[in-house]
């Protein structure tokens, strides 16, 4: 078992955003979490990555308990994510966005940083090299020196994924990667997600409202409503589940 969530519950004041959520993720799987707006999907990502600490329950990566750890510790353990509302470092260049995410991999200390001694120069050179190689994979190497805020939306989404991968994750959490993409771009994104999964040996959890993407690439789907899991299963089962149809897809949905 790579990632395991057990009885995870979270309250915002009196509002129960996630209740008794369970998830077992094997190495290499691609699982989706879907559900109506405000069902608690993003909150689950926030709980896994330590932005919020679960009110109850446990989340483990391998044998390591994540609840109570800080975000940067969790990222260092191998979980990275993207954001529903893009959260790039806007004023900074594309390459710096990626290089910031290498922080946990770099080794030199404060004194070496203050006097540019020791491992500083070699590590910095390697950092640029690695960042550019990664950007090339995402076809972003030509805009490496632009401020990230000047990129068109689609490129910003790609940069978010590139930045997440720069932390060398085992598990990648994608929060609505297809938002703001048109159907043909979504098609490309599907191929792309399949490819990075293989290339970077990733286990992926995906939140998405674009059913074509979810049904097209995910092996298992977890449906949430009002914080509670209302269905789990393979895409075929979910598409025909009456509760899912009613709460989320709507009658006569074309998926």
């Amino acid at each position: 078992m790579l990632l395991q969530a057990e009885h995870v519950t979270h309250y915002f004041g009196g509002l129960c955003a996630v209740s008794d959520f369970n998830l077992n993720l094997e190495h290499g799987e691609l699982v989706a979490i879907i559900g109506p707006n405000g069902a608690g999907k993003t909150t689950i990502f926030n709980l896994i990555t330590g932005v919020y600490h679960a009110t109850q329950g446990s989340i483990r990566l391998g044998d390591v308990e994540l609840v109570g750890k800080t975000s940067n510790e969790i990222t260092a353990l191998g979980i990275a994510r993207t954001f529903q509302n893009i959260r790039l470092f806007k004023e900074l260049s594309v390459i710096d966005n990626v290089r910031i995410a290498q922080y946990g991999q770099m080794k030199y200390g404060t004194w070496e940083a203050m006097f540019h001694l020791g491992g500083y120069q070699t590590e910095e050179n390697r950092s640029i090299e690695n960042a550019m190689n990664l950007l090339e994979v995402f076809k972003l190497d030509s805009v490496a020196d632009e401020s990230s805020k000047n990129l068109p939306y689609g490129m910003q989404r790609r940069l978010e994924i590139a930045r997440a991968l720069a932390t060398h994750p085992k598990v990648l959490l994608l929060d609505e990667p297809a938002a703001g993409m048109n159907p043909s771009e979504i098609g490309q994104l599907m191929d792309f997600i399949r490819w990075i999964r293989k290339e970077f040996d990733l286990t992926i959890i995906l939140i998405e409202h674009q059913m074509r993407l979810v049904m097209g690439i995910c092996e298992r789907i977890n449906v949430l409503d009002f914080g509670a899991t209302i269905a789990t299963g393979v895409p075929k089962e979910i598409q025909n589940n009456p509760r899912v149809l009613e709460a989320y897809l709507g009658e006569g949905a074309e998926v």
Binding site: P36, N37, A179, G180, H209, M211, L249, G250
Partner: peptide, 13 residues
């Protein structure tokens, strides 16, 4: 500007 972005399928309709 993209009023349906991020909405669940029921709500998009």
């Amino acid at each position: 500007d993209e009023p349906s972005m991020g909405l669940a399928p029921v709500l998009v309709r």
